[in-house]
Amino acid sequence: MLKKLLLFILVIIVVMQFFPPAENTSDTTPPTDLFKVEKVPETVEATLVTACYDCHSNKTNYPWYASIEPLSYWLANHIDEGKKHLNFSQWNSYSPKKKAHKLEEISEAVTEGWMPLDSYTLIHKEAKLTEAQSKAVADWAQMLHLKYQLKDLPQ
Rank of each mutant, 00 (worst) to 15 (best):
L2Y: 07
K3C: 05
K3P: 01
K4P: 02
L5I: 15
L5V: 10
L6F: 09
L7P: 01
I9F: 15
I9K: 07
I9S: 14
I12Q: 04
V14M: 12
M16W: 08
M16Y: 03
F18W: 08
P21W: 13
A22E: 09
N24G: 00
T25E: 03
T25R: 02
D27Y: 06
P31H: 02
P31G: 04
P31V: 02
T32V: 11
T32W: 07
D33T: 02
L34V: 02
F35K: 12
V37T: 14
V40N: 04
V40K: 07
E42Q: 14
V44E: 01
E45R: 15
T50L: 10
A51K: 05
A51I: 05
C52K: 02
C55R: 05
H56W: 05
S57C: 11
S57D: 13
K59V: 02
N61G: 06
Y62E: 10
W64M: 08
W64V: 07
W64Q: 05
W64A: 10
Y65G: 14
S67L: 07
I68V: 11
P70D: 04
L71P: 00
L71V: 14
W74C: 01
A76G: 05
D80F: 00
D80Q: 07
K83W: 00
H85D: 15
H85N: 15
H85E: 15
L86N: 06
L86G: 02
F88V: 03
S89Y: 03
N92W: 02
N92G: 05
S93M: 10
S93R: 09
S93E: 12
S95A: 09
K98Y: 07
K98G: 05
K99N: 11
K99W: 12
H101R: 10
K102F: 13
L103P: 00
I106T: 05
V110D: 00
G113M: 10
G113V: 11
G113R: 12
W114S: 04
M115C: 08
L117H: 15
D118E: 10
S119L: 10
Y120M: 04
L122F: 12
H124A: 10
K125W: 15
K125T: 15
E126M: 00
E126Q: 11
A127Q: 09
A127I: 12
K128I: 06
K128G: 00
L129N: 03
T130C: 07
S134I: 03
A136F: 11
A138W: 07
A138I: 05
A138E: 04
D139G: 00
A141C: 08
A141I: 13
M143S: 09
L146D: 03
Y148D: 03
Y148L: 06
Y148I: 12
Y148F: 14
Q149T: 12
Q149E: 10
L150F: 09
K151S: 00
L153G: 01
P154H: 15
P154G: 13
P154R: 12
P154K: 15
